[in-house]
Design a protein around this nucleic acid. Structure first.
Length: 518
RNA sequence: GGCAGCGUAGCUCAGUGGUAGAGCAGGGGAAUCAUAAUCCCUUGGUCGGGGGUUCAAAUCCCUCCGCUGCUACCA
């Protein structure tokens, strides 16, 4: 059965207590490239990001700042909207857990779980460290000199008990395993999938899903003493945004289940275990896929606030350029692995791949057209074998890139595009249009036409990754907006000979080290 | 500790039974259209150590060494 061409992709909602860093930028960037690709490929895309604004930490931070929590979150969530704008993300919606629509959705999913007998009232007890605001397991504790129990962090813990509602997660282990088995692509990469499965196989405990010790959260229906605990609240955002609780709405029917939840590896468990369990328990469909990507290090060092080596995305954009940063993050490491950000590697990518690669190819080709073809798309003659080879290589790149994008292989997609660039450079050298200028101008025209066509396709392919630069590249070929989708990728949408072209300008500057002060 | 995985050229990684690969870095050459960019050739590896299975092992098995991830309620 033919399903409508729609694609729903989400980032996690980011906890507003953190300042936006490279991790946030990276997750959303991957989703953005995916969303842009799917749109160009004819899909109706819904790309969601947002902020998680509830919880004890937010409540405390607001208090410390002397404002009420809502005013506090209004302010800090703006940082994430600013980031989205600065990184040129194309999200269709930005959800905040403090919105009315979301509270309604949370309370409704709670009611459904309650009605189906998936929630019961119990009490949550454990060793709690006030300083860390966290519970610890018995086996993590050590005994301090004064005989008190000490958390791994060094904080003293005390035994506390509070009433709490529980979700019967323990009853969902087998159903989850059956679900993973029936949906082998549900968790990626493969190694993460294995971890999740082994975790579930080791047995699941019921999950505490309410708290009474603070107020900043969604109230539990019919029990005002409790607020809903983070994960049920946070995860529900994914269905809130497509119209839940109105699960008969056009929006919900069209976009749920989500095609992909992109997450960092640290929150995989919540997305791959709790979330499908919540949904199945509420008789809703689980999402289709969760991808857990890796973390960045900075010049080989683990990034941490205490080391003071946090990477601010805006700083990178300012220093290297927006599209250069986007390109680096998606190209440098196999998506899913951890990766290292270093100035050296960044400059390498920026100069070798961008300036010397696509930048130089476009500039050398378009300059020759500008100077030797009356600044218009040249009239080609018949294609010879070499021409066909390059045209075909470019033609075949789209389906290859598509396959890689569908499995979130961003680095492979870019590598595929760069193979075409390499072939085009070899083609220029072999054909030597600068020599043909005198010996065989008609053949020169054909060669330059083939190059322009190749650049057209490269520009189209680069749009999801480097939207602004690709746009400038395509502007230099005077492509109409309709001619910029993948529907216009083929030969039947080839450049029209005679089309006047502007004087080309470099799109990818090289990075030049500032001279050391002497 | 338990479970899982990894260790291949200076760097990042591909290669899962049949003559060791790519990109970048290094060396040499060509070309001069282009952001001194490009193209060609090339140096470089006892595929972590040892043992075994096989006509044949980076690839399968055993063992040792080193590294990483997961091992539940801060998000």
């Amino acid at each position: 059965m033919a399903e409508a061409k729609r694609y729903y992709v989400t980032t996690p909602i980011y906890y507003v207590n953190d300042a936006p860093h490279i991790g946030h930028a990276y997750t959303t960037l991957a989703c953005d490239a995916l969303a842009r690709f799917m749109r160009l490929d004819g899909y109706d895309v819904h790309f969601l990001t947002g902020t998680d604004e509830h919880g004890q930490k937010v409540e405390k931070s607001a208090k410390a700042a002397g404002v009420d929590p809502q005013a506090f979150t209004d302010k800090v969530s703006q940082n994430f909207r600013d980031l989205a704008k600065a990184m040129n993300y194309s999200n269709d919606d930005f959800i905040r857990t403090t919105e009315e629509r979301h509270k309604k959705a949370c309370q409704e999913i709670w009611r459904r779980l309650k009605d189906r007998g998936e929630i019961y009232l119990g009490s949550y007890a454990g060793w709690y460290a006030v300083r860390d605001e966290a519970y610890y397991g018995e086996d993590e504790l050590t005994v301090g000199p004064n005989g008190k129990k000490i958390a791994p962090s060094g904080a003293e813990v005390e035994w506390v008990e509070e009433p709490s509602y529980f979700f019967k997660l323990s009853e969902w282990g087998d159903k989850l395993l059956a679900f993973y088995d029936a949906n082998p692509d549900f968790i990626a990469p493969e190694s993460r999938r294995n971890e999740v499965i082994s975790f579930v196989k080791s047995g699941l405990k019921d999950l505490s899903i309410s708290r009474t010790t603070f107020n900043w959260g969604v109230q539990v229906p019919d029990d005002p003493d409790h607020i809903m605990y983070v994960w049920l609240d946070a995860l529900t955002n994914y269905i809130t945004a497509v119209g839940f609780p109105d699960d008969q709405s056009a929006m919900y029917k069209k976009f749920w289940p989500a095609d992909l939840h992109m997450v960092g590896k640290d929150i995989l468990r919540f997305h791959a275990i709790y979330w499908p369990a919540f949904l199945m328990a509420a008789d809703l469909e689980p999402p289709r896929r969760v991808f857990a990507h890796g973390w960045w290090t900075n010049e080989g060092q683990k990034i941490s606030k205490s080391l003071g080596n946090v990477i601010a995305p805006l700083h990178l954009v300012e220093k290297y350029g927006l599209d250069q940063t986007r390109y680096f993050l998606l190209r440098e490491i196999p998506f899913g692995n951890d990766g290292d950000f270093s100035h050296r590697a960044m400059v390498q990518r920026m100069n070798s791949d961008l300036a010397n690669g696509i930048g130089n190819l476009a500039q050398r080709s378009l300059s020759m057209i500008n100077k030797n073809c009356d600044a218009a798309v040249p009239q080609p003659g018949d294609f010879n074998e070499a021409d066909e080879r390059l045209i075909n290589a470019a033609e075949e790149a789209l389906p290859k890139v598509r396959d890689f994008i569908r499995e979130q292989g961003f680095h492979k997609a870019l590598e595929t595009i760069w193979q075409v660039i390499g072939e085009a450079d070899r083609y220029v050298d072999e054909q030597a249009p600068w020599a043909l200028r005198k010996t065989d101008p008609a053949r020169m025209n054909t060669v330059l036409y083939v190059l322009a066509e190749t650049i057209r396709r490269l520009g189209l392919l680069l749009q999801p990754f480097m939207p602004q630069s690709a746009e400038r590249l395509l502007d230099q070929l005077v492509l109409s907006p309709e001619a910029r989708t993948f529907a216009a990728y083929g030969r039947d949408h080839a450049l029209k000979p005679g089309t006047a072209l502007p004087k080309p300008e470099g799109v990818f500057p090289r990075f030049v080290e500032p001279e050391a002060a002497s």
